[in-house]
Nucleic acid binder design. Structure first.
Lengths: 244, 244
DNA sequence: TCCCAGCTATGACGAGCGTCATGTCCTAGG
DNA sequence: CCTAGGACATGACGCTCGTCATAGCTGGGA
């Protein structure tokens, strides 16, 4: 199938390396920086590359750098005492990683893994500190970028702890669709390629169960998949599954 | 049993009404306020009282007031699509509720219910805005009070979605013990009285299962309970249960 | 005084889902 | 061209835990 080839390729090829400045500008948490401050950060920062599956950050390591996602997607996971990984956040272009921990001077509590081939910007923690201490408005924008994350975390907590995995998976897909999707004639297609393993981690279940549920939904025409590319054929149908 | 009577009484009696100023001073998120700002808030705020089980805040209502816990404990819950309540946070004296939503001008997404008879301070949203806009350091302290909440939420998310309920309950008790406990000769006693229902909501399970697990642990001498008062006899034993 | 309401407790049953095992398809690499 | 590995798929089995039903206990109010 031709379409399949294109999509697979898209995932495997190395995306074009973005410029340091463009990544800085795309970061909403830093949108209150003025020209001069941006230059300061620009001079000390550099782009880094990670292949799909590559670990970018290890939980517990000291924050030498803050990372800002340039292209691609990065998942943040926690390792449970028993060894399985649970994804708590998915970052796309313009979102940053470890900023709060850096400001607080704490170690970062999550693992970061590239979900797709990704370029990301590494900004030294020291440079962040300088800017943070000299920019009052930055605190305001940081606060506003943190609040929705807390809300989403609370929402997911509630879902994870009470609902059956079919509901959880539906919730995960809908949340992903909100942020990372474009419409096409066949429905809503997620712009981030996710394996069943990725989905399982986000819904807090096993690969097998994730596969079973996804297969069932494909038979029911709720969605269709093409390897890691997921097209939701009917958003309302998925929403119905939330309360079923 | 005499001890039992004292503890039950303690829970039922109306706690002494604290002063507005003392509650403001106890709030760590507002610890950067200067004398004058505190007075502004003081003049416009007033104490309110809630009995055990009383709803203080309904999810989705507009933020006329921000609440600061004075005495007692308040649980923040989300209602799932199917109607069950899931507790996402437990607030004690000095912690505040709705501050971020108020600053952002959003509706508050959680229900707030008094777990014990509680006095809390109601601060008008408008007054909060004034102070927020005129105090740069407040943003910093708010940021620092928000960050640990996000971390805890991520931790709970990971636990809720991956672990068996026995582990979840152990985790809940240990987290509670970190924040709301004092040592006594019999072990570590939680300073907040919680019903099995409360525990179940926090662990994302049912009352019956919570009761079963708690009973089992009492038989195993891991902890002992006296109505809603829980004494952890062996913290290490509980910690072992986390990884079991 | 009696009854009711709320919390705790315990048993039976069955569905959901985690675990293990096996198999297919596709791509990469030698 | 053949093989190895990773993603997807499907079946069997058994434990966990949610659901329903029942009951004892205590404190408060009529």
């Amino acid at each position: 199938m031709r379409n399949e080839g294109i999509l697979s390729q898209e995932m495997l090829e190395v995306p074009e390396k973005p410029s340091v400045l463009s990544v800085l500008a795309s970061c909403s948490a830093l949108n209150t920086l003025d020209e001069q401050q941006r230059e300061v950060l620009c001079d000390e920062s550099f782009m880094a590359y990670a292949e799909r599956g590559e670990m970018i950050w290890l939980a517990g390591s000291t924050m030498q750098f803050v990372a800002i996602c340039g292209t691609g997607f990065i998942k943040m996971t926690r390792t449970t005492p028993k060894g399985s990984e649970v994804a708590v956040e998915l970052l796309g272009p313009g979102q940053c990683l470890g900023l709060i921990a850096a400001i607080e001077g704490r170690v970062y509590p999550l693992n970061a893994t590239a979900v797709t081939n990704s370029w990301y910007l590494k900004v030294p923690t020291r440079a962040i500190h300088e800017v943070y201490n000299s920019n009052e408005r930055l605190r305001d924008s940081l606060l506003r970028s943190l609040a929705p994350r807390l809300r989403k975390a609370h929402e997911m907590m509630a879902r994870m702890s009470s609902e059956k995995i079919e509901q959880r998976l539906a919730a995960v897909l809908l949340i992903l669709a909100e942020t990372y999707a474009t419409d096409c004639d066949a429905g809503t297609v997620l712009t981030v390629p996710l394996t069943r393993q990725d989905l399982a981690e986000m819904a807090g279940t096993t690969v097998e169960t994730a596969i079973r549920v996804m297969s069932k939904w494909q038979k029911q025409q709720v969605l269709s998949t093409n390897h890691q590319w997921i097209t939701i054929r009917s958003i309302p149908a998925l929403e119905d599954l939330l309360t079923a």
